[in-house]
Amino acid sequence: MSLIDWNKLTITEPPVLPRELLRNFKKGLDGTFRDFSRSYGEALEDFFNPLLMFLKWFQDLLVSTPWPIILLIIGGLSWVGSRSWKMSLGAILAFVAIGWMDMWEDTMATLAIVSVATLLCIAIGIPIGIWMSRSDRVQRIITPVLDVMQTIPSFVYLIPVVMLLGIGKVPGLLAVMIYASPPIIRLTNLGIRLVDAEVLEAADAFGSNYRQKLFQVQIPLALPNIFAGVNQTIMMSLSMVVIAAMIGVPGLGVPVLRAVSNQYLALGLMNGLAIVAIAIIFDRVSQAYGKRLQKHREGDHGV
């Protein structure tokens, strides 16, 4: 059988696979994946079960914690990060406004998934970033994978994720992580590669071994970049909240979806702005913290 449908080939139509061949190809791929998900789907679900339990537990914890305590924690964390009363007060006011507009529970659910996703991205992303920085070959292989993860439309990888794991928190978390982990990996790699060669040479000259060099020189010097990656990862997981809502992740995305399908302008706007408010707080606090981390780089000769 020919690989080109010669009957259809004209000057305006490019060569195309015969219809039947193309259909078989798609069917084959679908079938293979369906078989795969039938035989391994359950095992995978079991594998991710602890994660699901943890997510549920964490979300319940946030929802059941009295709101004044949450406000205190938010204010406290902002203070720890930014050392600025204005920032803390702003964060508390934003959350009071969110509660006042009756979005408290959804906000807690969103906070739960975003923080778990960010933590997992960091836990997985930093080691991968380090590995990438060690070897040009690994970098050559991983970079295009990251490109795909960042650019492929989320809906496309939602299909296999949902086929495998169904609808729920875990597939939602995976979808968020696929989108949000590239920056932390990239910036860890970049940060380590940018460490001054002479400083590394000095570490060698004083007889540092691999681990000493990594933990005492490379990671500390790469920290500002790594931290920029953490910040980006938080922002990107927040931006995935609505898409995650499509596959059953509770949170601020759910009312937004409802607003889209029913043309509820106010509902959509309010929840959308709540996401923005959380994003701004996270961004400013984490950036202020990152800046404080590298205060020693400023050359103030005095005091």
Partner: peptide, 11 residues
């Protein structure tokens, strides 16, 4: 060893 550009750890 002592280096031309000092090669100190800035942090």
């Amino acid at each position: 060893m002592v280096f031309q550009k000092f090669a100190l750890l800035p942090h």
